[in-house]
Simulated assay, not measured.
Amino acid sequence: MAQERQINPMVKMALEYGPIILFFVAYLRLKDRVFTIGGTEYDGFIVVTAAFIPILVAATGAIWALTGKINRMQIATVVLVVVFGGLSVWLNDDRFFKMKPTMIYAFFSGLLAFGLLRGRSYLKYVMEEMMPLQDAGWMLLTKRLMLFFFGMAIANELIWRMFSTEIWVYFKTFGLTAAIFAFFMTQGSLFQTYGIEKDDSGA
């Protein structure tokens, strides 16, 4: 397996979060504008979505070029952004792009559930190098994350269907990220109970 090359953490963070921040800033600036392209009117949200797709693809490609590795979650995210974002732009309908987080979280929830039914933690394959845990810990964390992703999918559906586009953009930009951060912060006792200390003795 090819080893991931290390790059400046600030560069990696800029590539991972930069497209999302640019989407948010561009939306705030263009949300009330209407653009006529090829005789068809597009509101600011659709135009920003059209710009976001290649920016995200380019940023993900840059991560791959610099580190030699991208994880499955990043690949799935790019694919779903291209598919649902592309449908929103092509059909001039923002609903498809708003459904994208629902599809992402439902997909990962279903994937983790499938692994659990087979007695496996697919989460372990993705995150084992970052936080070594006993098998029982991986299974418990996977169950919790499966339920968390399912809840996030439901939350996204409720937000985009019941509230304005602007509220959904704030939720997507800050709410989803904060929820993921809060989830892992609340798993401290699990990491303490099932964590495995790395042997740095060189023996």
Results as ranks from 00 to 15, higher is better:
Met1His: 09
Met1Asn: 11
Met1Gln: 08
Gln3Asn: 10
Glu4His: 10
Gln6Phe: 14
Ile7His: 11
Ile7Tyr: 09
Pro9Lys: 03
Met10Val: 09
Val11Leu: 02
Leu15Pro: 12
Glu16Cys: 10
Glu16Gln: 14
Tyr17Phe: 09
Ile21Tyr: 04
Ala26Phe: 12
Tyr27Ser: 01
Arg29Lys: 08
Arg33Phe: 06
Arg33Glu: 10
Thr36Trp: 06
Thr36His: 05
Gly38Glu: 12
Thr40Phe: 14
Tyr42Leu: 02
Asp43Cys: 02
Asp43His: 02
Ala51Ile: 03
Leu56Val: 03
Ala58Ser: 10
Ala59Pro: 10
Ala59Ser: 15
Gly61Lys: 04
Ile63Phe: 12
Trp64His: 13
Ile70His: 11
Arg72Cys: 00
Arg72Gly: 02
Ile75Pro: 00
Val79Thr: 12
Val82Tyr: 07
Val82Phe: 12
Phe84Arg: 07
Val89His: 06
Trp90His: 14
Asn92Met: 10
Asn92Asp: 01
Asp94His: 13
Arg95Gln: 07
Phe96Ser: 07
Phe96Asn: 05
Phe96Leu: 06
Lys98Ala: 03
Met99Tyr: 11
Lys100Tyr: 03
Tyr105Ser: 14
Phe108Val: 07
Ser109Met: 01
Ala113Cys: 10
Phe114Cys: 04
Phe114Pro: 00
Gly115Phe: 01
Tyr122Leu: 07
Val126Thr: 05
Glu128His: 11
Glu128Val: 06
Glu129Ala: 15
Pro132Gly: 11
Gly137Phe: 09
Trp138Tyr: 14
Met139Ser: 10
Leu141Thr: 01
Thr142Pro: 08
Thr142Asp: 12
Met146Gln: 05
Phe148Arg: 07
Gly151Met: 03
Ala155Asp: 00
Phe163Gly: 03
Thr165Gly: 09
Thr165Met: 03
Val169His: 05
Phe171Leu: 04
Thr173Ser: 11
Phe174His: 01
Gly175Lys: 01
Leu176His: 07
Ile180Val: 15
Ala182Asn: 09
Ala182Asp: 00
Phe183Tyr: 06
Phe184Asn: 03
Phe184His: 09
Phe184Leu: 07
Thr186Leu: 15
Gln187Ile: 04
Gly188Lys: 15
Gln192Tyr: 12
Gln192Phe: 12
Thr193Ile: 01
Tyr194Pro: 01
Asp199Ser: 02
Asp199Arg: 01
Asp200Val: 08
Asp200Ser: 13
Gly202Val: 04
Gly202Pro: 07
Gly202Tyr: 01
